[in-house]
Amino acid sequence: MQRVCFRLQVRKEMMDEYVVRHASVWPEMLNALSETGWHNYSLHLDRSDGTLIGYFETPSLKDAKAGMEKREINAKWQADMAPFFVALDGKRPDEGFLQLEEVFYLK
């Protein structure tokens, strides 16, 4: 199982709304994530500066991303979430996150 950790930057003025949106993620989006191999998915927000850290486990990041790419609900969710982030350089949030290197893991 591949462990994936990533970082994005939420706009400070949009942090509260970002949290609200994630309190009720669309059921179709949740199903799509589960069905395409995104497991133990969590997001952590530093409200002091908008740093968002995400973590999930997947058999294959490449396959998980490719699976979501085929889902219409993902395109809608990414378009809805894109305004919340800075520095995406025209990419969708699921394409523009910075994947962090794992340097230690305690089983």
Rank of each mutant, 00 (worst) to 15 (best):
L98H: 09
V25Q: 05
L30E: 14
G90W: 06
A82I: 09
R21T: 06
R92G: 10
W77K: 02
F97D: 01
L33G: 13
V20E: 01
V25P: 05
H44R: 07
F84E: 07
W38G: 10
A82M: 14
M15Y: 03
D49K: 01
A23T: 00
A64K: 02
Y18W: 08
A23E: 15
P93Q: 05
G54H: 05
R21W: 05
K107T: 13
P93A: 09
W77S: 05
E102T: 06
R7F: 11
L43E: 13
D80I: 04
M29V: 14
Q99H: 12
E101K: 05
L30C: 10
K91W: 02
P59F: 03
H39Q: 15
D63V: 03
D94G: 04
D16M: 04
A87Q: 06
A64D: 04
G54W: 12
Y18R: 00
Q78E: 14
D89S: 07
V19T: 01
Q9I: 03
H22P: 12
L100F: 12
D49L: 02
L45H: 00
S48V: 04
V103Q: 05
K65V: 15
Q78M: 14
F84L: 11
K12H: 10
K70H: 12
L8H: 06
P59C: 01
R3G: 14
V103S: 05
W38M: 13
Q9V: 03
F6A: 10
E57P: 05
V20F: 03
V4I: 08
S42M: 12
C5G: 11
D16V: 02
F85Y: 15
A82W: 08
A82K: 15
L100N: 11
V25S: 07
R3M: 12
E28H: 06
R71H: 08
S48A: 07
E72Y: 11
F84W: 04
H22N: 14
R3D: 15
T58I: 03
F84N: 04
D49A: 08
V25F: 07
W38K: 06
Y41K: 06
R3A: 13
D80H: 11
N74V: 03
Y55R: 03
F84T: 03
E28V: 00
T51R: 12
L43D: 11
Q78N: 06
L45N: 03
S48R: 03
A75I: 04
Y18N: 01
L52K: 09
W38D: 08
D46Y: 07
I53M: 13
D80T: 07
L61F: 13
M29N: 14
H39Y: 14
